[in-house]
Simulated assay, not measured.
Amino acid sequence: MPPSATPSRPLTVLVTGASSGIGRATVHALAGRGAQLVLVARGRESLEEVAAEARERGAAEVVVCPADVTDADAVQRVVDTAVAQFGRLDAVAHSAQTMAYGRIEDVPREAFEAVVDTSLHGTANVARAALPVFRRQGRGHLVVVSSLLASVTAPLMGTYAAAKWGQLGLVRTLQQEVRDAPGVDVSAVAPGGVNTPIYYQAATWAGSTGRPPPPVYSADRVARSVVARLDRPRRLVQSGVANPVVIAGFRLLPAVYDALVGPLFRWFALAGDGASPSEGNVFGSRPSGNARDGRWRGL
Rank of each mutant, 00 (worst) to 15 (best):
F112V: 04
G298W: 00
R139C: 10
D258F: 02
R235I: 03
P277S: 11
A54R: 09
A130S: 07
L174D: 09
G87K: 12
S239L: 06
F86S: 00
A130T: 05
P244C: 12
S95Q: 10
Q137R: 11
G274M: 06
S4F: 11
G280I: 01
D180R: 12
F86V: 00
G284Y: 01
S288H: 08
L253Q: 09
T118C: 09
I22W: 13
G294V: 01
E53V: 12
H121Y: 10
G298K: 04
V75K: 03
E53M: 14
Q97E: 11
G294S: 03
A242L: 11
C65M: 13
G32C: 13
S218Y: 14
L168R: 15
G43W: 05
A150K: 03
P233N: 03
E105S: 11
Q175A: 14
D71K: 10
G87L: 08
Q176N: 15
S276V: 09
V62P: 09
P213C: 07
D220R: 13
V189I: 14
R232P: 01
I198V: 15
W296H: 14
R9E: 15
R128V: 09
G193Q: 06
G158H: 09
N125K: 05
V194T: 07
Y101H: 11
E53W: 12
V184G: 06
V69W: 04
E49R: 15
W296F: 14
N243F: 04
A35K: 03
L252K: 10
A59M: 07
A59E: 03
P197G: 02
V226N: 05
A41Y: 06
L230F: 09
D220N: 14
P191Y: 02
V152F: 07
P108T: 14
P244Y: 12
P215V: 01
V171D: 01
S285K: 01
A31C: 10
T70W: 10
E177S: 07
W267V: 08
A228C: 02
N125L: 03
S278I: 12
G23Q: 04
Q36W: 09
V50L: 12
A67E: 04
W267Y: 14
D185P: 01
V144I: 07
A259H: 14
F268E: 02
G87P: 05
G58E: 05
T204W: 02
A255H: 15
F283E: 04
P212M: 01
D106E: 15
P263R: 13
F265H: 12
T12Q: 03
L170P: 02
A93D: 09
L236D: 03
R55A: 15
V107G: 11
D185V: 01
G249M: 13
G32F: 14
V194H: 00
G122T: 02
L142V: 10
A203R: 00
A59P: 04
I198N: 06
V261P: 04
V222G: 00
V222Y: 01
R295Y: 15
G289C: 03
F250Y: 15
A255N: 15
G169T: 09
V246E: 07
A223Y: 02
A114I: 07
V143S: 09
D68H: 08
A67N: 04
P2E: 05
A35R: 00
G210I: 00
A100D: 06
A130V: 11
I198D: 08
S225E: 14
L236Q: 12
R295F: 13
V256P: 06
T196N: 09
A269L: 08
V92F: 02
P263K: 14
